[in-house]
Simulated scan of single mutants.
Amino acid sequence: MVQAGENLQVRLGLSRTPHVTYRMADPGTVLTEPGTLAAFGFGTGSPDSDDPRWLRVALESFDAPAPIELWQVDATVVCGQQEAVRWSSGGGWLFAAVEVNEHEAGGIESAARQAYAALCQFMGTRDERCVLRIWNYIANINDGDDDAERYKQFCDGRAAGLGDFFANGFPAATAIGHHDRQHVLQIYLLASADAGQAVENPRQVSAWRYPRQYGRTSPGFARAMLMPARDALAISGTAAVVGHASAHEGDLEAQLNETLTNLEALLATADMPAGFDTHSPLKAYVRHPTDAYRVREILQQRLPGVPVLLMHGDVCRRELLVEIDGWRYS
Rank of each mutant, 00 (worst) to 15 (best):
A118T: 05
A198V: 06
L256V: 11
L59H: 12
V286G: 04
W327M: 09
P27R: 04
I138A: 04
A148Q: 13
G196R: 10
P273S: 10
C155W: 03
M24R: 09
G196C: 09
R223D: 12
H312P: 03
G243H: 03
N262Y: 12
Y151V: 14
L299E: 00
I235C: 07
P52S: 07
M225V: 11
H103W: 00
R113H: 06
A292W: 06
G45N: 03
P281T: 10
A191H: 08
S46E: 01
D271M: 11
V57A: 15
D50P: 00
M227V: 11
E60G: 07
V322P: 03
A284Q: 04
E200H: 08
W93P: 09
S46R: 02
L8Y: 10
R56I: 03
C130N: 12
L132H: 07
S218Y: 00
I68V: 15
V242M: 14
G90K: 07
G177A: 09
A240W: 01
R126I: 03
V78N: 04
M1R: 03
A4Q: 11
I134G: 04
T76H: 12
D251H: 15
V241D: 02
L162Q: 13
A247R: 15
C130A: 15
Q182L: 03
V77T: 11
Y214H: 14
G124A: 08
I176Y: 00
A198W: 02
Y151L: 05
T217D: 04
Q3T: 13
A270I: 01
P47W: 05
V184C: 07
A268T: 14
G220H: 10
L31F: 06
D143I: 02
I298Q: 05
H244C: 15
K283N: 12
Y116L: 14
S218K: 13
Q81S: 01
L94Q: 08
M1G: 07
G90N: 09
A198S: 14
H178Y: 07
L132D: 06
T21F: 04
S236P: 10
A25V: 06
M227F: 11
W327R: 01
A118P: 00
T32M: 10
L37F: 01
L12C: 00
R86I: 01
P65S: 07
A115W: 00
A111M: 02
G243F: 01
Q213K: 15
D127F: 05
D143S: 10
L8R: 14
G106A: 05
A58R: 05
A191P: 09
